[in-house]
């Protein structure tokens, strides 16, 4: 499967104070190919998270569309949008783990709607935990983890279904250099199975990337291609 994600004239605006609208993304046209690392950088508040959330089907664009395999997934309605979300692995900036569940249970969650058996969910989740070197924390409650460990858990949860589309929002923000490198390598590994990997991060990480990447800068609502 050789997928790609295309944003066509994508704009997102939020209503602000005094019923004024604040434009966050302005007429973005871009294609993110499969099998390559796509890095989006930009200043704080530039709209990186909004762009990722819009592509992942979490928010609707104000105008324009997100097209995946010739399907305008951003315009799909309710139940169909859920189907699109199930194809995507999303790493949130704030992790969004369920604190009352263990690390293993958190990672098993995306597998439940796919209808696998519990033993299959468990073995796949353990494999994902091993990939992020958190196997020894499998039985711990999520609220007892450190910031970096939570992010690793969130990464494992996003990758456990082996999705074709991965949206990572600041996936290494709370990690040291070594862990950060390991997690980026893991995301690079996903490009090897032809997944579309899009990472929103700070520019400082560009010098430490373990491989080639397509880099973009998001500023003032516009997305500009930097360099390969």
């Amino acid at each position: 499967m050789n997928s790609k994600i295309t944003c066509r004239n994508l704009s997102v605006a939020f209503s602000g104070e005094n019923s004024r609208t604040r434009s966050v993304l302005d007429n973005i046209n871009v294609t993110f190919p499969a099998g390559k690392m796509n890095i989006i950088t930009g200043p704080i508040g530039a709209g990186k998270s909004t762009l990722l959330h819009t592509m992942a089907g979490l928010t609707r664009p104000t105008s324009g569309e997100v097209v995946v395999n010739d399907q305008a997934v951003s315009r799909w309605s309710g139940a169909h949008r859920d189907q699109w979300r199930r194809q995507a692995g999303i790493i949130f900036q704030h992790c969004h783990l369920l604190h009352e569940l263990t690390v293993l249970e958190n990672i098993m969650l995306p597998l439940i709607p796919l209808g696998h058996t519990v033993s299959h969910c468990r073995s796949q989740s353990i494999a994902a935990l091993k990939q992020v070197a958190l196997f020894h924390h499998a039985g711990r409650l999520a609220n007892s983890l450190s910031g970096g460990e939570r992010q690793k858990t969130a990464i494992a949860r996003a990758l456990v279904t082996q999705p074709h589309f991965i949206f990572a929002d600041e996936p290494t923000a709370h990690m040291d250099a070594e862990n950060s490198r390991q997690m980026m390598e893991l995301l690079y590994h996903c490009t090897g199975r032809n997944a579309v990997v899009i990472v929103a991060t700070h520019e400082s990480i560009l010098n430490r990337l373990p491989g080639p990447a397509l880099c973009y800068r998001l500023e003032n609502g516009a997305l500009n291609h930097l360099t390969d």
Binding site: N9, S11, R60, T62, S63, A72, R75, S77, G78
Partner: peptide, 17 residues
């Protein structure tokens, strides 16, 4: 069309449903 009016209508049509 994928303009703002159409997308807004699509979202509101889901609500009407």
């Amino acid at each position: 069309s994928a303009d703002s009016r159409q997308l807004s209508l699509e979202a509101r049509a889901e609500g009407v449903s």
